[in-house]
Write a protein that binds this DNA or RNA. Structure first.
Lengths: 227, 227
DNA sequence: TCAAAAGTGTTTCCCTTACACCCATGC
DNA sequence: GCATGGGTGTAAGGGAAACACTTTTGA
């Protein structure tokens, strides 16, 4: 039997934010996870996140987490979803708002967190995570795939200058299927959101690939009306 | 200067849910709004919603609101987004989780709320709303448009049996542009998610239209792998 | 027989897909 | 000169878009 609630009874919830940080390295999509140091779940791997205070904004708190994790909060972030049926926190009910972020592991990770055990893991090697974080991640991956085909968002995971092969590998890894090299390149050149920037100076065998840069202006034009 | 927070300081937030209820009538997309009876914003129009208690689930609370509004909670609901920078509630910070629902105004509205002033308004006539509800609605409309082209979700706004003209008008209204009749029908018949069900018994001039019914089975097949 | 709405096919174009060989470079 | 990876064009098929007339019915 539920008694009549007083207004103040409504202000007893916890709100947390959780972040799926995506990176790309070694030809694999990577996610940042860290070990939880407090109970419950002490010792378990989890996505970074925290409970927020009443005076913290959702995005601000999320950026705070990102900054703690990689020493920098200037990355692409998007809200994923709110999760209401979260784990039981010892102190009460928690609503979790999940975000995901895309970053370049060389450029954007300026100072990876040192005070807590943490690592980047290829998505295919993600261990069981605390809370409902495996579900969050699953949704985040779905979302990333959808975004990737609808908007050329993948650039945000690469260096400022990248080769088309790198970009294609990124797409193949995330989408989980092979793409035709010629068709892939044709599509990109038709979109016209890439500008050539000379050649890469590799010391590896084979022809030196051209470097491209993502053209923000064209990209924004497309964003106005969808792709 | 922020003092060190105690754990209990984190459990002082309010969480609310808000619902954008979509209907379709008179050839127009309609949204359910109601007048707020309590301060702040007493007398202003707003989307239905409420603060939830620690023991309420997000979906359950949302269904409660839907039931209060239309006397029935068996409708299509989907989460829209969490909004963190909501109005200042006198008692503290509130995080709002918005949902949207699609319903048929004849079949699903079994008992429209009587204890509170409320109405269905065509989206183009929506008045200024309390809180940030105009923003919520704007996002909900974007989302509806996107869903409409990616999934044949529009059926949920119509009667069980409907004519193709009705369906086309619905699409045109929501997408805000005209569609070619022949191409529209061709696409639908190719999808094969409609089954014919005889003819409508109108008493209006003109040829009697065929009635169609939405084929759940085929629809679910498609949902498995996207459209 | 007229007004009103329903219904129906074909062509064009473009995007997508499938597919195989030559080019530059380091060793 | 050979191994390695980079780069390129064309043909066929399928979905999207443009486009106009006939059919049914009530008044």
């Amino acid at each position: 039997m539920m008694r009549d609630a007083l207004l103040q009874d409504y202000f007893k919830m916890g709100v947390s934010v959780t972040v799926v940080l995506y990176g790309f390295e070694g030809g694999k999509l990577q996610v940042y996870i860290q070990k939880i140091s407090t109970n419950p779940y002490a010792g378990a791997w989890a996505l970074p996140g925290k409970l927020i205070l009443a005076e913290e904004g959702l995005i601000e708190a999320t950026k705070g987490i990102v900054k703690e994790s990689i020493g920098n909060d200037d990355i692409y972030l998007e809200q994923l979803n709110a999760f209401g049926e979260i784990y039981r926190h010892p102190l009460g009910r928690v609503i979790d708002v999940a975000f995901y972020g895309l970053l370049n592991m060389k450029k954007d990770v300026v100072n990876q967190r040192a005070d807590k055990e943490n690592t980047w893991v290829a998505v295919e090697d993600i261990p069981p995570l605390a809370y409902d974080h495996n579900d969050v991640l699953k949704l985040a991956l779905q979302r990333l795939k959808r975004r990737l085909v609808n908007r050329p968002i993948g650039f945000k995971l690469l260096n400022k200058e990248f080769t088309l092969t790198e970009l294609q590998q990124l797409y193949e890894q995330i989408l989980g299927r092979e793409l035709d090299k010629r068709n892939f390149r044709k599509k990109l050149t038709k979109l016209g959101i890439l500008t050539a920037e000379g050649h890469e100076d590799t010391s590896s065998p084979g022809r030196k690939p051209r470097l491209f840069r993502f053209n923000e202006t064209k990209y924004n034009d497309y964003m106005e009306q969808g792709f």
